[in-house]
Write a protein that binds this DNA or RNA. Structure first.
Length: 178
DNA sequence: GTAAGGATTGGC
DNA sequence: CCAATCCTTACT
């Protein structure tokens, strides 16, 4: 493991504070064969509170959304379309359901592809990013810029929640632009 | 118990 | 455009 692992204090802040800082952080995964791979986080989406109609917690506290009501620093995974495990990090204080969906990591764009590459399954539900020895986050001196875009695939949430720019995507600094 | 639908992807 | 594929939720 690493001295650079992100501490619990990083996650228990409001998701609107945590999310921008998550772009460019390192997602580390130790697979069953012991091999460790690290990926730079490239694209995420913010889901914030029961009032956010795009957030699963808008349906209230259920077996599925339970972990989002926990203190930040845990993993929320769920199966979508019967095929893909989507990875989320819970943020914020207890009883304030918030999560950050990981939409893209180095070389793997799309939340379904992220889950497939990381070999996620139901056993990751509720896993602690602070203490887990198979998945965690690290920081270094890397600096990144990002752009803010509308979230994807939540048209059912209504105009406000489907157009709010809560998708953050890393933007390359173009030194040649005039 | 039953049915509908989904924070996606890949192929036609 | 549309099927794949199956768990969760919201009913009866």
């Amino acid at each position: 493991m690493s001295d650079n692992r992100l501490p619990k204090s990083f996650f228990i802040r409001d998701v609107l504070q945590v999310a921008p800082e998550l772009i460019g952080k390192i997602l580390a995964r130790r697979f069953n064969d012991g091999r460790i791979k690290k990926y730079r986080i490239k694209e995420i989406e913010i889901y914030r509170g029961e009032e956010d109609l795009g957030c699963h917690a808008s349906k209230g506290r259920t077996g599925r959304t339970e972990v989002m009501y926990h203190e930040g620093g845990k993993i929320y995974v769920y199966l979508i379309y019967g095929m893909y495990w989507l990875l989320n990090f819970v943020t914020g204080p207890k009883n304030d359901p918030q999560a950050i969906l990981i939409r893209g990591i180095e070389d793997f764009n799309g939340p379904g592809k992220v889950g497939r590459e990381l070999q996620l399954d139901k056993s990751f539900y509720g896993e602690s990013l602070i203490t887990s020895n198979r998945i965690w986050l690290e920081t270094d001196e890397y600096i990144s810029l990002y752009e803010e875009l509308p979230r994807i695939g939540i048209d059912y949430a209504g105009k406000h929640w489907s157009t709010i720019r809560w998708r953050l995507k890393e933007k390359q600094l173009n030194l040649n632009s005039s």
